[in-house]
């Protein structure tokens, strides 16, 4: 009896320290986001406060000036936001379709050059992506998909190479028993039918994972996106446009507006991510184990 209480006590003390540690970690993790949010409420209007860098976190007066600035038409923020959303949406749809197709073919079918293709793509993936930016830019330019056409251009480039990202999805398909396919095939179903009516309905988690990852990518893309937009303001995505507020000298005192814009980008994505987190975990865990 005495031993049990001492165990309990020990555990309680252990738990206490664990909680302290967890709270500490949480504070560290949340602090930057808290700061970002607070700064976004500091007005850039010199009559109220100041929009550049300051040495305090909590604004002296809370104001929505920055958000007003983003949405009242003075900038193309809505346009940039919409551009990014369109890119993310289409990339997400097409990438998922292509990844599913490639994964199915590589997982279920044995054709000539299959292993060669997988090795070849693996090797291609070892080249740094930035290397080919200039070449991709001129390729897109040849078909008129730069500057004013940057949005479809970015979708095209992103979708075109998406087949190479089949690993996680193929790993998932590999875990679906082949016997199911075989049974259906004996009953006379074609490969296409098996794929569409059997494999896909069983792959909801991996479809959501693939779509989610593809959807989140374009929100961060500023290097190649700024290359393709090439100074055409209306074709920017949020990352390219807002990056300028931080690094280009013409934009003095835009810091709080950057924070507000960042919050507007982060909030919906975070909510979406939180809702689909379960599938994300399944995807990354599967991918990690399969490699």
């Amino acid at each position: 009896m005495a031993r049990q209480t001492s165990m309990k006590k020990k555990r309680a003390v252990g738990n206490f320290f664990s909680y302290v540690l967890l709270i500490l970690i949480s504070l560290i993790w949340l602090f930057p986001f808290f700061g970002l949010l607070m700064q976004s409420f500091r007005s850039y209007d010199p009559a109220v406060e100041y929009g550049g860098m300051v040495d305090y976190i909590i604004p002296h007066t809370f104001s929505l000036d920055n958000y007003r600035f983003l949405f009242d038409g003075g900038t193309n923020y809505l346009r940039w936001y919409l551009n990014t959303f369109i890119i993310a949406l289409f990339v997400s749809i097409f990438n998922t379709i292509i990844v599913l197709c490639v994964s199915y073919a590589l997982s279920r079918m044995r054709f000539k050059g299959r292993t060669f293709l997988m090795r070849f793509w693996l090797i291609l993936g070892m080249f740094p992506g930035f290397l080919t930016m200039i070449c991709l830019y001129f390729l897109l330019k040849q078909v008129g998909l730069t500057q004013a056409g940057a949005v479809p251009g970015l979708i095209l480039v992103s979708v075109a190479s998406s087949g190479m990202g089949y690993y996680v999805c193929k790993g998932y398909f590999d875990t679906i028993p082949k016997a199911l396919d075989e049974a259906a095939r004996i009953d006379g179903a074609s490969r296409a039918r098996v794929f569409l009516t059997m494999t896909l309905p069983m792959s909801k988690p991996i479809i959501i994972y693939t779509a989610l990852v593809a959807f989140m990518g374009p929100w961060c893309d500023y290097v190649f996106a700024s290359y393709v937009a090439f100074g055409h303001d209306k074709s920017y995505n949020v990352a390219v446009a807002m990056q300028r507020w931080m690094v280009v000298g013409d934009y003095q005192g835009y810091f709080t507006r950057f924070c507000a814009g960042g919050v507007c980008v982060a909030v919906p994505i975070t909510i979406l991510f939180m809702c689909l987190q379960k599938y994300y975990v399944e995807g990354v865990t599967g991918g990690a184990v399969k490699g």
Binding site: V102, V157, S161
Partner: peptide, 24 residues
């Protein structure tokens, strides 16, 4: 069926990954 569903992805990778890498 593999050829049908792989045609587009392989072409895409060729034009937007292989060609640029060979170019660089």
């Amino acid at each position: 069926f593999d050829k049908t569903i792989m045609a587009l992805p392989v072409t895409g990778v060729f034009v937007f990954t292989v060609l640029p890498i060979v170019f660089m």
